[in-house]
Design a protein around this nucleic acid. Structure first.
Lengths: 197, 197, 197, 197
DNA sequence: TATGAATGAGCATTCATTCAT
DNA sequence: TATGAATGAATGCTCATTCAT
């Protein structure tokens, strides 16, 4: 079915939605067939196994995450602290899709033991850390900046757990507020609460 | 099979191990039968559905978590900051069982959507928050103490994601170090890094 | 559990209700345990197999049918044609219990092939035929009376099929009206539509 | 498997035989798999549930009944009374298949409570009634013809109960003889007892 | 007498996957 | 490239029955 770039992208998006909604093991090839409009056998024409299909989906999710969230870190048109907040707000927005939280963490915790997706998922965390490190790097030495970045992600993942269990968006909002407030640059600038995104 | 208290506890422990290892959906009743020595039909003699069995397992896990980790917060024989560190070290140790991370978060992220276990899992987070709040309460007002407690748990869950993906225990250790260092009391006392556990 | 006559009778009645409602194969020992208040193992204390339990239930049903319906044929206090109509009205009433129709025919059609209950079920039909033959015997020779009796039962069973499928009691009522009207004695007597039962 | 018309028909016939022999609840998908040569999972490729498969089988049985028995009523090449007798003889023949009696009544009495097949089964009775009414319509007014038709079916179903329980084909034969004898046209014509079928 | 525990076989159904067309 | 048909293994769960107590 994925005959053009656009179609393949749409195909993977539809699969992503299903995997994100149900988790890896709780998603059947039948579910994916229904969601994409292909026949079950059609899926196997493009991806030899469910695992490999999922691999493509994770890859796709990472690409989307790159262009939607991580790219903000390098957006020269915005000041550092605005890039920081914009990234957090986009993370927040992603977590709220169907109240499913962080796709990477969901898959990581569900399938971490098999190590099959670990490398890719870890890659996602790494790029994420890099992007945030870059921003922290304006105020901290590289090592410290990296630690701050990782800590931010950790808090985010934790906030997502609370959010997913309760449905209270406040956990995510508090996370953003707190992190923005603690971000070095913010103490210098003032009142930039609402950005476009 | 669980005809005596000890046997039921052992039964639930064995189920917990399997669920923790495979996740909820990736664990079959057959897996549990093998792990517990019962026949599949025997499991249904005690628990009418897989979901309800899991509910008992989560309940059991919470009880264990209470007596192993949360109880430390009220251990009058230890100073506040030692209780704090001891709790974190026990959290850390739990996360390292088969490198599976936090049982509650694993289940929460995998099954959060159906809301069936949410109440219990949220109860676990609440009690956990309460215990840590109590300790923070020595140095902060109640509201702030609660926020610190939640933030600690969030960081822990995030650290666990990194640990589970990489297998590097350093992420957990760093989390403990950092948290202990940031704990108010610790600045007054000195050098109590390694407790028994 | 069936320790006294009354209790055993109650026990069998409860089983009868369940078998009548669900059919033989669609009734489980669990269903019977629930309906009677015994444990499953308790049932096996009194009846070695489901089949033998059912045999007792059929026996019980026949006894009830004898005393409730067939006995009317010999009720000397009523004229022949009133006995006839009263029997039919009682048959009708039985068929309307939970809209299940004729217990004997239900079991006969469901399990007829195995022949296990056939002898008893056939006994029921025989006694039934005898009772009606006796009444027809006042107007026909024995052989003809027997044929009339069988034909009446056949029509009854057929009417029950229509009733069970549609839920329209009219089929049963029509059967009664038509049969009463065709009964020889009735042409002599007049207006005895409603009896006590 | 049913990829051609003929094969689907054969498939349904094989299922019909099994359902007719064992009843609905006493037939397992395994039984049907064995009888049709498919694997259990293969059955589900064509029919999503056992109930829906049965629905198709009932539909198929009705179609067969239409073309084998009901169509005789409109066979212009035969005089009315011969059509009537031919229909009864075909009913009789159907009842004798493996001594199972009337498929529609068997299913009706076994599953009538859940109402799932009722509509179709009632449809069968209706068409049956229509066909016979048409024949009776040559001698009675429409309302009376319909009543006669229903009564005939009722007697047939009752005769089948006796036949199934005893194995005596005489009950069916008597039913045919008696009905043919009572059929209005027959009193005019003479001696046409044995037709081809 | 009664029951809680247990079981092996079986239930309807779904799984990821294959293959002929 | 795509699909309808098929499958063997497994799914969660129920069955009639047994047995130690």
């Amino acid at each position: 079915m994925p005959v053009q770039k656009i179609e393949k992208s749409d195909f993977l998006l539809r699969c992503w939605v299903v995997f994100h909604r149900n988790g890896y093991h709780n998603t059947s090839m039948q579910d994916l067939a229904k969601a994409t409009g292909l026949q079950k056998a059609g899926l196997y024409h493009h991806y030899p196994t469910k695992q490999l299909l999922m691999e493509s989906v994770v890859q796709y999710a990472l690409e989307q995450f790159r262009s939607y969230t991580l790219s903000v870190a390098h957006d020269q048109s915005l000041p550092i602290e605005q890039r920081f907040e914009k990234m957090l707000r986009r993370q927040r927005r992603l977590a709220m899709i169907e109240r499913q939280g962080c796709f990477f963490a969901n898959i990581a915790l569900e399938t971490g033991r098999d190590e099959f997706f670990n490398k890719m998922l870890l890659g996602a965390l790494d790029e994420w850390t890099d992007a945030l490190s870059m921003l922290y790097g304006y105020f901290y030495d590289p090592e410290q900046a990296r630690k701050e970045a990782q800590r931010l992600i950790m808090e985010y993942e934790g906030a997502v757990v609370f959010y997913k269990l309760t449905g209270h968006e406040q956990y995510l909002e508090d996370f953003v507020q707190r992190s923005v407030h603690a971000f070095p640059a913010t103490s210098l600038t003032t009142a930039n609460t609402s950005l476009g995104i």
